[in-house]
Design a protein around this nucleic acid. Sequence first.
DNA 1: TTCATAATTGTATATTTATTCTTGCGAGCT
DNA 2: AGCTCGCAAGAATAAATATACAATTATGAA
Lengths: 160, 160
Amino acid sequence: MKVKNSRLDAIRLILSTQEIGSQEELLNELAKEGFKLTQATLSRDLHQLRVVKSVGVQGRYRYVLTRPHQYRHEGTEGEMRPVSPVQEANGFLSIKFSGNIAVIHTKPSYASTLAYHIDNYEFPEIIGTIAGDDTVMLIIAEEASRGAVLRALRTIIPNI
Amino acid sequence: MKVKNSRLDAIRLILSTQEIGSQEELLNELAKEGFKLTQATLSRDLHQLRVVKSVGVQGRYRYVLTRPHQYRHEGTEGEMRPVSPVQEANGFLSIKFSGNIAVIHTKPSYASTLAYHIDNYEFPEIIGTIAGDDTVMLIIAEEASRGAVLRALRTIIPNI
DNA sequence: TTCATAATTGTATATTTATTCTTGCGAGCT
DNA sequence: AGCTCGCAAGAATAAATATACAATTATGAA
């Protein structure tokens, strides 16, 4: 849906520039931008964006974005995201799983850069990485399935 | 007050080892540990600890600690432990568990020093470590609980 | 197109969380 | 001792947020 995506964008914009302390407040800001929706929908949007209600400077509550970058899980919509340079040349060769560990093999010297980008996304499915020269080890969250890990990584490694 | 501080400690311990999705749930866990309090008090505790309700891997809500660093507001108790240089600057940021592995994130370049110190102690709970630039992975002994690991690490990382 | 399926949303409501108001307690003071 | 100040906490309640359900709308396959 076109409406929803631009609304999510608007939410991100607002939250990154203003101090919003409640959903109702955010609802008002969105209304100013011409978005008409209910608190229920907003709650769902925030959940999807993984926005959290945090505690700001004066002890006041504040909604904050947690993701450096957005990644859409299952592209319900075609929605061609722009492709970053990382995706162009990530050196990815293979991935294998064992227990709660995944091992990615890369071309020589690519591992640490790839790990850096994975870390950056702070996928909840991946609690940490460690890299050698051509190998990245991922520790997978206990609740995460391998499919979920692959989907998450696809943001960075489309050719996975 | 002594009670409150140990309760805050307990909250941190619980949140760092379990998936807690509501205050009531946390209240139950605290009850198991012998803490008796109401939701109102817990809400205030969480606010003080700047715990946020976030979204975990399965789309489930989860309370997470935002500040790995401990801060006691009022030095109610003198308790001035001598602080070693390691403790001064260990670069510790966060710790997460999955299976028998713990992942510690540190400030850039701190990981190997921290791992070195952990190795040095030869904690029976930790059978080995491996470090990158800002990540230390710990392999946990089969018999060791996560609480035990945290307690052990507290020797080196008081702000854990 | 038409049907089936999945996604989006609102309404109403349940659930959850924050806060107001009050009491009790202990430290430090005179 | 009595007094005050400030923190801690519970009870009750307000406020905020999540969700079950139903209706609508989009998407895709044949």
